[in-house]
């Protein structure tokens, strides 16, 4: 019995330690945001002299000023358009390709060819992409940037999808469908696609996060202010408010909020998408 008690006490200790570590971890994650939130209500004067105190006086003009100065709604709209359009295209292409690679392809050559794309850094293709789009007149257009994002996400998506379909779409179902006279395309849409929901969620989540945070191509392909994504709108803050620190802080908060709201709402999907065993071979 004492043995049991000892191990229980030990596990209680472990539990407490675990919670302490996790609490410290979460605090380091959240602290910067809270601090910035606080100084968003201060003037430069107080930020320099008393960066951690309660704002005195409370400066509330920073937030309205940010909305007035930065076109946040346009940035948000563009970011959403780019993210969702890319997610749609990538999911469509990768599920089709993955379906073939998992169920019809012989050998692994084609599969390896696709997943090679996963390893390729954006810089390696940036200049030719820039030139190709320019020659096609697609620089500074929405289709242009969506095309680029689709292309760079494709390798990864095919990799995840192929693995997923191999595991979760049983051959028997497809065979049965073929016997019932279902065409290849029909089998894909009627039989396979419903079984691929989780896989698509995984790919969609990843692609969404990638595109949401993409900066490099946005910087070189979207110089028109009407087309800039939220990420680049945030970036503008640096040049414009580099010394009005309260305003800068307010800008950071305003631009962090949409992402946080989206995440809070879709938290389960985001985590489930990742939890779907996407990365398990």
């Amino acid at each position: 019995m004492s043995n049991y008690e000892m191990s229980k006490r030990k596990s209680d200790c472990g539990k407490a330690l675990r919670h302490i570590v996790l609490i410290i971890w979460c605090m380091t994650t959240v602290f910067p945001l809270l601090w910035v939130f606080l100084i968003a209500f201060k003037g430069n004067n107080q930020i320099f002299t008393d960066p951690f105190g309660i704002p005195d006086p409370w400066i509330t003009t920073n937030f309205p000023t940010v909305f007035q100065k930065l076109d946040i709604l346009t940035g948000l709209k563009n970011s959403l358009i780019y993210s969702f359009a890319t997610v749609f295209l990538v999911c469509l292409l990768s599920s089709m390709t993955g379906f073939y690679l998992a169920k019809y392809a012989r050998g692994k050559l084609l599969y390896m060819y696709f997943i090679l794309g996963m390893m390729i850094p954006v810089q390696a293709i940036a200049i030719p992409m820039f030139v190709k789009l320019r020659d096609a007149g697609l620089n500074n257009t929405r289709p242009g940037i969506i095309l680029v994002y689709t292309v760079i996400e494709l390798g990864f998506a095919v990799f995840v999808m192929t693995g997923f379909i191999k595991r979760s779409v049983p051959d028997e179902l497809l065979e049965a469908a073929a016997i019932d006279g279902c065409s290849m395309v029909g089998a894909f849409f009627r039989v396979a696609l419903p079984l691929m929901k989780t896989g698509i969620a995984t790919v969609g989540t990843f692609v969404f996060l990638h595109v949401w945070n993409e900066f490099f191509f946005g910087l070189i392909l979207l110089t028109n202010s009407k087309l800039t994504s939220l990420n680049l709108t945030t970036y503008k803050l640096r040049g414009q408010y580099s010394s009005d620190y309260g305003l800068l802080a307010a800008g950071i908060i305003v631009l962090a909020v949409p992402a946080l709201v989206i995440y809070a709402i879709f938290q389960e999907q985001v985590v489930k998408g990742l939890t779907a065993g996407a990365v398990k071979e």
């Binding site: 820039f130 320019r134 620089n139 500074n140 910087l219 070189i220 392909l221 110089t223």
Partner: peptide, 8 residues
Amino acid sequence: SVDAAADN
């Protein structure tokens, strides 16, 4: 610089 290279 980028705009010039992009003919934009």
